[in-house]
Design a protein around this nucleic acid. Sequence first.
DNA 1: ATCCTCAAAGCAAACGATTGCTTCATCAGC
DNA 2: GCTGATGAAGCAATCGTTTGCTTTGAGGAT
Lengths: 350, 350
Amino acid sequence: MRCAAAQRVSRGCALTVTIREVADAAGVSTATVSRALSGVQTVDPELVARVRESAESLGYRANRVARALRRQSTQTVGLVIPDITNPFFPAVVQAIERELRHDGLSLLLCDAGNDVDVEAELVRNLFDHQIDGLLISACDRIASRPAVQLAASRVPVLQIDQQTVAEVPYVGVDQADAMGQIIGHLRDQGCQSFAYIGPRPEIPTARERFDAFADRVKPVDPAAANRTYLGDSSIAWGHEAANRILADGPPPDAIVCANDQAALGALQALREHGVKVPGDVALTGFDDTVLATACEPQLTSVSQPLEELGARAVRELSAAIGQELRQPRSVLLEASLVIRGSSRRLPPTG
Amino acid sequence: MRCAAAQRVSRGCALTVTIREVADAAGVSTATVSRALSGVQTVDPELVARVRESAESLGYRANRVARALRRQSTQTVGLVIPDITNPFFPAVVQAIERELRHDGLSLLLCDAGNDVDVEAELVRNLFDHQIDGLLISACDRIASRPAVQLAASRVPVLQIDQQTVAEVPYVGVDQADAMGQIIGHLRDQGCQSFAYIGPRPEIPTARERFDAFADRVKPVDPAAANRTYLGDSSIAWGHEAANRILADGPPPDAIVCANDQAALGALQALREHGVKVPGDVALTGFDDTVLATACEPQLTSVSQPLEELGARAVRELSAAIGQELRQPRSVLLEASLVIRGSSRRLPPTG
DNA sequence: ATCCTCAAAGCAAACGATTGCTTCATCAGC
DNA sequence: GCTGATGAAGCAATCGTTTGCTTTGAGGAT
């Protein structure tokens, strides 16, 4: 008896063992092997044991490509993010990958490099891979919409952090609330005038932060509208913007930054001009990156629940993939203010 | 004439268009469509045009799962890294993904969470996906070997940054040379006694850095062997280790750290004890992360060519995947010393 | 003893592409 | 006009699973 496996071995190419070889070894059909191993159907327990044993001894592992073709489901999801070197993402990606694996799903990672055209191509490419679901953090508030909409018409899609299409569910962090916590804290510290440094609001979260700042500050300090400095997300822009603030007139009581990079750049510029933080100007960051604790004084910032963000996203998407009719649900998480030296002008009360 | 496409549409499930439908639309066989689109020469140019047009108008995109099954090649590579939140990796991952895409390959990302058992399972799982190649940065100098060896017996494998198996090619950065640059620089600055803070050498690069430090320093300062503080890769450990250094006796001229986190922690501890950097003690980091420029004084560090690392890795792997017989080649890149305030005790010469 | 039921296992058809082999037509050479 | 060469297009097998349908056989009811 020369079974397929034996033939392969004799030809020196036993690299992969197929279900056919397990079937031969166990003396049953491939159908029975499939059913025995997947445990769904009624298979004689004795046969199940024999099949298991054969599979084990041959080191059989099902070919997921073949299974995907037949089942019309790859158990794979795509993740498209704008820029993984943005310190926001690694922890989210890690949580996503871990949770997906926990659910038996695999991750195709794509980095759009902040380019909307690349992003659209990535989405198309992921569909060629027959992904079962898509997680996407869009590059652009407007220009990314067609890609997200196209995707949502074909598989369950969950927008991560950035909601560009209102109809498509998303998992994010309440930016307005977070900014509210910052302003509230600064007012508690006695600050009455404010400036804002951040990126141009090309992406939804940047816009939410900026809008929330404007909203909360207007009643107290209408002049703050003249002290908003919009550039990019770099340390350099924080530095530059702080220089402009100092050049434009007497500094405000507080400078609110839309990210830690900007706050750090601003801190360096203030120090160069001999402006004391928090004595002369209170300063706050956003995102609570590693930068926040690297400088002196350390930065008051807002910590976003990154792991939870990733985990919740996967939970929602995974549920939608499992049950045909279930649409993923949107989830809004809360950030938490982390108060450090850069904004502490008063001794803690109580 | 009711072609397959029309039937699907009428049943309301025209989600994907297959090669069959393109063939029907163009009035040819699927074989001809396949050949026309893949650019085989033996197809009448007129037919090629007709097929292209049909494919275009139907929005046909080849199903990569089906293609992979038939061609026995998924055009997909796996990447296994120990921990993407380690600031070393995001830039490398980004470069890898970009270069893979450029070569028409896709990336299955796996994060082992620094767990060797998880890592081994991830490799097995990637094989179930029929990956065409594997990039791996191993968790452990010893315990990761079986997984790497198993992988290398089946597909082209390239070790990234960490070489755990000597026979398997790798792309990395010359750690010993980098450490040599640091010691050379510190000696130029007049430092004669040294201490070392770093992680326990469980992974190859950590060991290389430590060994290189010991080698280069021994001729100048044999006592340095008593001032090596091995813990983990955290800011906290840098802080703790620096405290111990100060407690253990008069501080050395220089503290060499195996990463920026340790250097930052040490800097904070030294500041707390009123020890001046670089006046009393010179301090150096490693990896040139964002932390290096976040503190005051900024950290002298070693910048590794992360993008090049990723790009070279892909170039080698991709070539090996393309040509059956070609084994990837090992590549050793050079890091560059970035001198900043933390080690500058003398005015620059010249 | 015959028929019916029902469970268990196998046969074979998918899934959607690629590709070896065959067929068919055209054309040149004799 | 016949044969052979050449080239283009199609047929059908194939990749490795899964699964609908059929077959088989055992056991119970009549």
